[in-house]
Amino acid sequence: MPIRDEQLQLFPRGPGAGARLLIYVLISIAVIVADTRFKVLGGVRSALSTLLYPMQEAVQTPLNVYDKVSGFFVNHAELQRDNAMLRQRNLDYAGAVLRYRDLEQENTRLRTLLHAHLRTPLHTSLAEIISVPRDPYSRRIIVDRGSQDGVRAGQPVMDEIGLLGQVTRVYPYTSEITLLTDAGQPVPVQIQRNGLRAIAFGVGTDNVIDVRYLPQGADIRKGDLLVTSGIGDVYPAGLPVATVANVEHSANRAFLRVECIPEAAINSYRQVLIVNDIPAVKPVRQVPGGKKK
């Protein structure tokens, strides 16, 4: 018997190590091809994943506990800082609201003395953006309000910061809004600082609009705020539109080149406000005797 064992050790039967490796590689390739083409190992992977899940959870438990404990202290400190900042901001806003109310009352008194028409508050309806057309040459959005909700073509659209654009197409349950950054979209504006009227146009680029046809000597500066002028009965007067970012003077051109940044968060929010009606401005008529009526 010992002689036979020695013979087996000296002359081993069966394939060698290289042959076995080649066989294992071929089997692995066959299994991979079969799984790729026919998904034969999907159940096996699911079963292994189910069996290994408790082990994974056990391994991850210490790390999860450490993350939660460390995150608690970090979040607590951040919440304290955020709370202090929000409290200060709330005080600032409260002061601004008090000043705004005082100015509003003073404006009402002055308009009453001048027998001028009082501006009525805007009536708006909330709409949510549901899609953005994938057209690189247009700046439009689709909202979830249509003719069934009373939306009409031509209505202005805004957010809580400023003007966004205008309703251009209305369907039964959706509407298309053309943003003020769309190429060639005009908006009658005026400079809040001095009342100079102009026309702002979109250029087809996000966050940029131009003011055109202003002569070289026009009084417009970097940082000026542009608001809607109310001319044309399309947009209500006084809505923030854009801030002047750059003014270029050139002797070779008849007009200034003015680039502005829109005030509204055009690409940030999912909700917009559709202005339902625009207050009609009654002209102040002169009557004999110099009195206004």
Rank of each mutant, 00 (worst) to 15 (best):
I142Q: 03
S28L: 13
S175M: 01
A237Y: 01
G18K: 03
D224P: 02
R119L: 13
E57G: 14
V31Q: 06
P54C: 05
S138K: 15
A96E: 02
G195W: 05
A58D: 10
L110K: 12
I141R: 00
R45C: 08
Y93C: 04
G162F: 02
T228P: 11
G165F: 01
K293P: 07
K222T: 15
I199G: 00
S229N: 11
S125A: 14
P133T: 04
D219R: 11
K282R: 12
V97S: 05
Q148R: 08
I209Q: 00
S229Q: 10
R87T: 14
S70C: 09
R193C: 04
R99F: 15
S138W: 06
L163F: 06
Y24I: 08
R193L: 04
S49I: 08
Q216W: 02
R101D: 10
L86A: 12
Q185P: 07
D277T: 07
G204I: 03
A251F: 12
A58F: 10
L98R: 09
Y213S: 07
N64T: 11
L239Q: 02
E160C: 11
A280N: 05
I130M: 06
L239G: 00
S229G: 08
V65E: 14
I161T: 03
S147K: 10
N64Y: 10
P54Y: 07
P121E: 03
M85G: 09
Y137F: 12
G42Y: 14
R257M: 12
A280F: 12
D224M: 00
T50D: 15
N90F: 15
G204V: 01
D182N: 03
Y235V: 03
Q60W: 11
P186N: 07
I231Q: 13
N276D: 08
L98P: 00
E160D: 14
D277G: 03
A58H: 11
P283I: 09
E128H: 15
